[in-house]
Nucleic acid binder design. Structure first.
Lengths: 224, 224
DNA sequence: TGCCTACCGTTAATTTTATCACAGCCCTAC
DNA sequence: GTAGGGCTGTGATAAAATTAACGGTAGGCA
């Protein structure tokens, strides 16, 4: 009764499923490049270190089903995943902070087939503003809202220094952005209707370090 | 019978809890810097956009408990989290591929109080090998195994090009590394006793893009 | 001092996510 | 043809994570 789509039987896909779909697709593109036309669920699974059931379940969730028992048609599946996770007309992405990380991200995109386009970068460094950095025009942060609106930017990659990250919330919200990938180590309070993915590299590394330890258990009912 | 600690009542902490603990700590350090001595669970919670119950539960899981009702002692909690997620003597980290991403990661570490030390970088570019890049000595990838052993490197940040990522598995395994943070878009098959965290930036961005869409629901039992 | 508020720690319930198990069917081989 | 094997799709089950509920108690205040 509370969802705005309560009258239809619609369901939100699990976040992990979305991540895996993205990974499946990239693997499938690789397979396609190698001339492969069909692939079994267990093959796709082992490539990702997961189980075949997981793959089939994910595909079931998006309503994909194979018309043959010779595995999934690679090309068809690629397109189908695209209908789920892509926006039909693509989606413009802006990036705030044009340092090493931003340049790395931008370069990652080169050569990748994707409906995502990084169309504008923002920085305050006068050496970068007005130039094209890593193939993306760089604007001054002061002009963020109007430029973002001009470019119809819907998602933001935030790579500014953590110390100024909080100041970005207001302009990002005002520019009508719908999703934020936050590389900053500052948790940000956006309105609920903006999707935020916090992705702090220190946290990740500390997590890896924790699970790299020999002793990563915690005593429970045990006493001295 | 399979765990080496089966005789004690020990439990593995949830992955999410580890991530949050890392985030709590960084926030607490920030609070400490601002002269704050105590903090309530609901304050810590709202800073991270989660609930107070979640915070209290996480702290319960690691066996932390406050001796007062005036909130948690910031400094004490910081140290306690450290006893859980840090290795007592710190942990040496190596980084493979010294491009933009690696330099960004390395810079992120500067000024952060952490038991993690990036002590060696590896690349194949002769312009980088033998020099100090972002404060870290850079060795040739050919010398990886012996150098990693010398430095007692336990965790690896993998930022090489995806196309050669698979070739890194063997030397990393051979060097006795226990954890890998894989920024590559290639899923890697390490032995089970090596902890791997796959973090592909394209996947993340596609996820953000998906949840940025207006329509991210999937029909279930609904028909035409 | 003694009530009252509000915060903490913990158990229980719920929700979400992943795994198991199996029915059905296409494909292959004979 | 047709019997058998192997792959898919999915209901049932289990595991993981989050959220709710509540008793206990320190601290504030009259």
């Amino acid at each position: 009764m509370s969802t705005d789509a309560a009258h239809t039987n619609a369901k939100r896909l699990p976040e992990r499923t979305i991540e895996r779909l993205s990974e499946y697709r990239r693997m499938l593109l690789e397979c396609l490049k190698q001339g492969r036309t069909h692939i079994y669920s267990h093959e796709l699974a082992s490539m990702h270190g997961i189980t075949a059931v997981q793959v089939r379940r994910d595909l079931m969730l998006i309503g994909f089903s194979s018309d043959t028992k010779k595995g999934y048609d690679v090309e068809v599946l690629i397109d189908f995943i695209g209908t789920i996770i892509d926006s039909p007309d693509g989606l413009n992405v802006g990036i705030i902070g044009m340092g090493n990380l931003a340049q790395a991200v931008t370069h990652y995109f080169n050569g990748k087939r994707s409906k995502l386009r990084i169309t504008a970068a923002f920085d305050v460094d006068p050496h970068k503003v007005g130039k094209t950095v890593a193939g993306v025009p760089c604007y001054h942060m002061d002009t963020f809202v109007e430029t973002a609106l001009q470019h119809d930017i819907r998602a933001i990659i935030l790579t500014s220094p953590s110390s100024v990250a909080a100041e970005m919330v207001e302009p990002i919200t005002r520019a009508g952005v719908r999703g934020v990938l936050n590389f900053t180590s500052t948790p940000l309070n956006f309105p609920d209707d903006i999707y935020v993915e916090d992705y702090d590299i220190i946290t990740l590394l500390e997590k890896v370090a924790y699970f790299s330890k020999d002793n990563n258990l915690v005593p429970t009912a045990a006493d001295e």
